[in-house]
Structure formats: structure tokens, C-alpha cells
Design a protein around this nucleic acid. Structure first.
Lengths: 335, 335
DNA sequence: TTGTATGCGTTATCAT
DNA sequence: ATGATAACGCATACAA
């Protein structure tokens, strides 16, 4: 069943059928009704591929997601997909992992499928070595690219993010001002966002005239950041004589590990030790005690991403960079 | 840059370029090299829409996911997308929520985009009222449909699932045989899978010659199933005089709520009360104490879904229904 | 082995 | 207001 069949049955030309389909104003009411009747009677649906070929778009957004099973990214995925679909765009998903070659390949794939725009989800996309970001610059030449939680000044690349540095500063100050003296910092990324958070940690100490003990900065590689790994590492640090009375982490999951440590070491939270996570993910309510965490405004970020993408696709001028402010959500793991 | 440009620059016909592109054997090595050189020199990529129009496929699988932020479905999403992409198929994602009209619309959308196959993720797709499943029968007339954790006998619909009933029976027996006498059952779905799990709970009691106290069956609606809601409901049940010494739930998240209750009520887990979840999701390690849960073999299910889909698309005969057996993963919340 | 011609199902540009 | 026809870019049957 194609447009020719419809035109034949309705006794009009395919041009008229097409006009009815795209509700062009240049159709008489009578013929419109006649054609619509045939369309509904046959259940005809226009062929999306042919339409795509003619218009050079299938109204599709490519979502590049390092890991859809990460609660934070899964939440973002849900928000983005929902909003885009509401606006008439479908989402092509590509879970590439965090390795550069795979990400590059993911972008290549999306480009080859002629998506209308690409969203890079998460701060892990920007590499330090500028040349390693060429695949993004390249993609931006073809379609608008939007970064979720990343900063990358480039034509046709738009950035929507949270001020991580300030958010961590505020969170750290909260710890210091509530009496904590040695705040352990756990992180598992050295990328742009990761460095910003670390800088926030340092800022807070500087603001209170305190030196940062570099031994308090504890890095976990992505694959070694399971709850148990973190717990065991902290137990070991304690045995090695490292003292700390608070923990702040770059991700909620690391904080859950810290809470596990506290329980095993018999340290009361928050009385003897405070913990603050980051992302305000669904883990916060599941943790015991429930986790104080930085809400980095994911919903607002996602909505802004969709609005920006649609604006760009409509040819409007859109802000290259939009920054939201994080907010500390206090629960049971802090005083 | 299209196939005509390439053919002109290479001094051959578009047919030859096409042959090179699809590595047909009927091309001399010299011309192949000549054409490849031009292709690589220009960075030409064939237009996916035109190709789709001609072949009537863009090698795309539609994933219908009620909620990508659910840890279990997010995990499935990751597995499926990864496997499909490895096999050369891209995934179009549609997070429709759990309401019938939206799901119906989601299927419609995927069909209109001519996906090669559809995966319905989760047991919430099959309605009790047979007519309400017509949209699935309808979709199956156009493309193969695969159900993740659902059973639906229908031509061109394939089912891959875990034997939930038996898994819950085994889990419940484990509780009864370790001395628990009053096992509370928390669930939040009355669909096919939900009823199977409940039946498993009843089976276990029957096998041990015990009657089921209907007051121990506690339903939570999807939107009222937050950790806190569960905790508060259990506190109220206890105040109302309902006695129970174990909890088994249809989802891990409900078990987390039960653990929250235990802590607030001052009941020691597992000494005074045991808890078993379902799905063996990432929440299990985050909970305190860590949650014993039924592993329903998600990875195996997803891999089998992909294999089945590819088989069907290649015209092979594939099993209509494949059942995996769940496995109880013991952690700290049981004796 | 290579080239020519046609179909795929739309949308858009002209005429009328 | 409507119709004829040309793109759109590829795959492929058929011819050479």
C-alpha cells in the first residue's frame, strides 16, 4: 500500500494525496475528505524511508550514552527520550562504553544514519588531548552536538551543565563548617568534570585557610569502583593510619562504598563521620543511612538540552553554554 | 557527495561503486582498489535513507521500555543495545511508561519507522483482556516481536523469560525451611509475571502444608512503591498487629523498603527477620545489610533475545518460548 | 567484469 | 485547486 494506491482509489493524483498527508492549505475540503476516507479505510501509513530520502531527515536524535545501566545516565536517558519523542523526534541509542575508539565509532554510526542531532551524555566525552576530540568537531560540522555535563567550545556544539566546582565547594564547606577536619575525597574520573569537582574541594579548603592533604585524595578506576572495592580500600587506608572524619565523592555509588566501610569499621554516621555523594540519584534513598548528595539538576539540564536542540534545528540562535547551579540535598549522612 | 560523484571520480559506473561498497565478488581487484581510493579520499558514506528505501530496511530494532530508569530495565537495555549493535543493528528506543495507550502508540511509532523487529521489555506488556493485546498481534503481522519476561502465544511473537513461579517457590522455601513462619509478600504488579510470582509463593506454602494468610499479601501501586512508602506501610502493618518474620518481594526496590522498615523498627536482619528481593539488581550490594535476591538471568535472557531476533530475521525456525531458571543469590539478609 | 536502466515511495516544482 | 514529473541516492536485474 503506497501513495499510488491511495491516489488511484481516491481518484486523485499522488500530489494531492501528499498534500492531504502534509495538510497543505491548497486542498479543497471535499477532496481532503475523500482522500482521508481512503487513507483511514486502508490504514495506509507513508513510508518513512522514502520520506527520509526526500526530506533528508527522519526526525531522529542520536543519544550517545557511555553506560545506560548507570543510574544517573539511565535517568537522563529517560528524561531525554521522553521529551524528544514528545516533540516528534525518535531516539537512536548507542551505549558505547567509555573508551575513545568505541565512542568515536558510535558517533560515526549516528552520522552515517543521518540523525538530526547528537547528544553526548556525560562528562566523559571530552579528552584532554585536543586532537582526540576531533571526532566531535567533525560531527558538529554535520549536525548539532549537545554535551550533557561537558564543556567544549566549538562551533555547533552546545553545552548544558551543572557548576560542579561550585557545588562541590559548597558541599565541602558544609562538612568543614560542621566540624569535620579531614575530608577524604573519592573520585573515579580525571576528565574535565572530574577536575572541576576536585578544584571545588580545594577551593573550599582554601576559603577556610586549610591546606589539602594530598593523601586524602583517593582515585578509583571505573572498573574498580564497585561498592566492595571502595569499602575495602577505605578499610586498608584506615589500617595504614590515614585519619579522616568525612568523605565526599564524585559519584553516589562511591559514597555507598564509604557507608559500607563505616558500618564495617564501626564508625557511626553522621556522628563520627559524615558522607556526601554526588548526583542525588536513586541510590541516596536506598543507602543506610540515607545519603546526603548534590542534586545537579538533571531534569532541568535534560529539558534544556531538548529545547536547545529543537531551537538549533529550527535555525534559531541558541546559547552555546548553559550552566545550572547544584543544590545540596541533606539527608541522614551529614550533621 | 553521492554514489554518482564517486563513480565519476573513479571513472567507473555507479553499479561498480555499489558493488565495491557491498563487496561483491564480481569486481576486479584493480578497479576495487581504484574505487576504494576515491571513497577513502573523499570520506564518502552511502546515504542510509536511500539504502533503506531500496532494501526496505535500515537494520534497526525497536526497543519498547516502560521505564529506562528502573535499574533492572536499564541493565537489560544496556545488554540488548550492545548485542544488537555488535550484530549490525541499531536500536530505536521508546520509553512509553506502563499505560496501555502510550504503549500502543509506541508500537505504532516503531512500526511506522519500519524497524526490523520489536522487543517488548518487561512483563507489563501483556494485558488480561485479550482484545487489549491486539496491538501486539497486529505488530507481529508486520515484524517479529520478542517479549522479555512475558508469555504470549501468537504467531511471530517469541518469548524469552525466567520461570518466576518456580524461582519464588524456591526462595520462599528457603525462608520457610530456615525457620520463618510468617512470610510477608510485597508486590506491585498484578500482570502475568506478577501472578506467577504470587503463585510461587502459594506453592511453597502448600508444599510445606501451610495455609497462606491473605493478610500477608501486600500490594503497592507502581507510583506508591517508593522506599519510604514501603517502610511506612510496614510500620503501620506492625502497629496494626500483623506479625511477620520474613519478607519476600517481587522487586528489589520493595525489599530495600523492607530493610528500611527493619532498621526503623529495630528488628535485626537476618536474625529476627529475613528479606529476599527479586532481580538481583545493583541495589542488592548497596542495601544494608546486603540483599539476598533472585537472579533471573537477565544477561542470558538478553543474549537469547538477540540470537532469536537475528535467527528469525534470517528466516530460520526459532523456538517460540524459552524459559530460564532463576537462582537465589544469598547475601546478608537471609540466614 | 562492467555498464545501463529501472524501481523504491516520497516531496517539491512546475504547469494548468 | 489539481496534476504531471523530476528529484532524492541507492541496489539490482539485465545487457554487453
Amino acid at each position: 500500500m503506497n501513495i499510488y494506491d491511495i491516489s488511484r482509489r481516491a481518484g486523485v493524483s499522488i500530489a494531492t494525496v501528499s498534500r492531504v498527508l502534509n495538510n497543505s492549505p491548497h486542498v479543497s475540503e471535499t477532496t481532503r475528505k475523500k482522500v482521508m476516507a481512503v487513507i483511514e479505510g486502508t490504514g495506509y501509513v507513508p513510508n518513512a524511508f522514502a520520506r527520509g530520502l526526500g526530506l533528508n531527515t527522519m526526525k531522529t536524535i542520536g543519544l550517545l550514552c557511555p553506560d545506560a545501566s548507570d543510574p544517573y545516565l539511565a535517568q537522563a536517558l529517560t528524561y531525554l527520550e521522553h521529551s524528544f519523542r514528545q516533540k516528534g523526534y525518535d531516539c537512536l541509542l548507542s551505549c558505547t562504553g567509555r573508551e575513545l575508539p568505541a565512542r568515536r565509532q558510535g558517533v560515526e554510526l549516528l552520522k552515517s544514519r543521518h540523525v538530526d542531532g547528537i547528544v553526548l551524555m556525560g562528562s566523559s566525552f571530552i579528552e584532554d588531548n585536543s586532537a582526540d576530540n576531533d571526532y566531535i568537531r567533525d560531527a558538529a560540522k554535520a549536525v548539532p552536538v549537545i554535551l550533557l555535563n561537558g564543556s567544549f567550545p566549538c562551533e555547533n556544539v552546545y553545552c548544558v551543565l551543572c557548576d560542579d566546582q561550585r557545588a562541590v565547594t559548597d558541599a565541602t564547606l558544609q562538612l568543614l563548617d560542621s566540624g569535620c577536619r579531614r575530608v577524604l575525597y573519592l573520585y573515579h574520573s580525571n576528565n574535565y568534570s572530574g577536575r572541576k569537582k576536585l578544584a571545588g574541594y580545594r577551593d573550599a579548603h582554601e576559603m577556610r585557610g586549610m591546606d589539602v592533604d594530598e593523601k586524602l585524595l583517593c582515585y578509583f578506576s571505573q572498573d574498580k569502583s564497585s561498592v566492595h572495592q571502595v569499602r575495602d580500600t577505605l578499610l586498608q587506608l584506615e589500617r595504614d593510619g590515614l585519619a579522616f572524619d568525612a568523605v565526599i565523592t564524585s559519584e553516589d555509588i562511591l559514597s555507598v562504598g564509604a557507608l559500607k566501610y563505616a558500618r564495617m569499621a564501626g564508625r557511626k554516621v553522621p556522628e563520627e563521620m559524615c558522607v556526601i555523594g554526588y548526583n542525588n540519584s536513586s541510590l541516596c534513598n536506598c543507602a543506610e543511612p540515607e545519603l546526603t548528595s548534590v542534586d545537579n539538576k538533571l531534569l532541568a539540564i535534560c529539558e534544556h538540552i531538548v529545547a536547545t536542540m529543537l531551537g538549533v534545528l529550527e535555525g534559531k540562535e541558541m546559547p552555546q553554554k548553559t550552566v545550572f547551579t547544584g543544590e545540596l540535598i541533606k539527608r541522614e549522612s551529614t550533621r
